[in-house]
Design a protein around this nucleic acid. Sequence first.
DNA 1: ATGGTAGTTCAACTA
Length: 254
Amino acid sequence: MKIASWNVNGIRARIDHVTAWIEENQPDVLALQETKVVDELFPYAAFESLSYSVEVFGQKSYNGVANITKNGSTQTSKGICGLVDPQTRVISTTHKDVRVVNVYVPNGQAVGSEKFDYKLSWLKHLKKMLKDDLKKHPKMVVLGDFNIAPSDQDVHDPEKWKDKILCSAQERTMFEEILSLGFKDSFRLFEKEAGFHSWWDYRTAAYTKELGLRIDLLLISNELVPLCKKSYIDEKPRWLERPSDHTPVVVELS
DNA sequence: ATGGTAGTTCAACTA
């Protein structure tokens, strides 16, 4: 089973990139973040013409997540159970016996800001939901834009980013707590070196200067670790005209 | 050098 995640920064602006990527890569599940569209205006037809099914949880202008699936899904749930949140950031679906939880973690703006507090609180609620979900679904993939670089080796210049948003100790501690529920960062099962990134800021022309961070992540539950064959970043779409600022990331399970 | 670009929406916000 091939499961992928991509923060597309506007699905309507990126629809040609996304459908081309699906045709080339044939994922079983593609989890999208930052679709930035209400459900009524989501471009369903583009996916249905590829025989993919679509589950969406959108809002106007901001946020928005969607699970695009080759063979359909069951048990769709939207948001974080127990959290009242006007921002649409989580959608979960089940595929055979694998639960897929698609997350768009809040960015947090700056350490110590109001948005940072929201991010940490949101992550606490996510952790609680994942703890409960894992009991029901031993085979789980939690994937998406985590807006956290797990360690310094996921950052192009750790000194420059030290204690900054996406890299602070508070964020990394919350990430470690989520892993300790019983998940692994699948990419690091295979690649131990630094220098692999999934997001580059538009504003500083960061991509051509290779100033990236690895913040798009694929967590797999411990029970899936023996079944995990590959986990990788696909940088190719970042070179297209008018690309997303994020690349797809992919995990393959047997 | 607290700038820069992009998407949505149409002045301002989020990232």
